[in-house]
């Protein structure tokens, strides 16, 4: 059997990928299998956008341009990648239906770090566990300076959790 990708070499790898209920079977040679990993994105953004006909109907939607990086929505449609963080605000309306298709919903419900935005008791406890684990790792690998630093952090965090629990 010849390789599905190059039709030159013997296919020695029978690759199967199941993404979103879609089964993709490929018979590849070793070289092409390695290359496959390069393009291993589950979604082809350009194809998806082509299917979402409500996006970019108006010329103005396509020519909308990000003032920070200079990317237009048309550029995004071609590349499948945005230009900078500001693009998400500039192209918000066009992106919403796309994000709805790719993800569970177009709204973030995970944590937002930026230090003061997100600190609550539960997270302190998660942090404490992580620190304890790291402490034992550093002790094991004899990184004593690092261990001392972590020990201080643990002390501080314990105090914080105790005062919270006390209240």
């Amino acid at each position: 059997m010849l390789c599905d990708a190059c039709h030159k070499f013997e296919a020695t790898i029978h690759y199967t990928e199941i993404v979103g209920g879609k089964v993709i079977k490929l018979n590849l040679c070793e070289e092409c299998f390695k290359k496959k990993e390069l393009v291993n994105t589950p979604f082809n953004i350009s194809e998806l956008l082509a299917g979402l006909t409500q996006i970019g109907k108006d010329v103005s939607e396509n020519t909308a341009k990000c003032g920070n990086c200079g990317m237009t929505f048309l550029d995004f449609k071609k590349k499948g990648k945005l230009g900078c963080s500001e693009c998400y605000s500039v192209f918000r309306t066009q992106l919403l239906p796309l994000l709805k298709t790719i993800h569970k919903s177009p709204h973030h419900i995970g944590f937002i770090e930026q230090s003061d935005l997100y600190i609550d008791e539960k997270n302190d406890k998660v942090r404490l566990e992580a620190l304890k684990k790291r402490l034992s790792e550093t002790v094991k690998s004899e990184e004593f300076e690092e261990a001392a630093l972590i020990r201080d952090q643990i002390k501080e965090l314990r105090k914080k959790i105790e005062t919270k629990d006390g209240n």
């Binding site: 945005l82 605000s89 790719i102 993800h103 177009p106 973030h108 770090e113 930026q114």
Partner: peptide, 24 residues
């Protein structure tokens, strides 16, 4: 996150170059 300012907004979470990774 204390050392650099990450690209983040409240609606979409952490902003990534490809929209397949945005959010978390």
């Amino acid at each position: 996150s204390k050392k650099v300012k990450f690209a983040v907004n409240k609606e979409f979470g952490f902003l990534t170059s490809c929209p397949t990774n945005v959010g978390t």
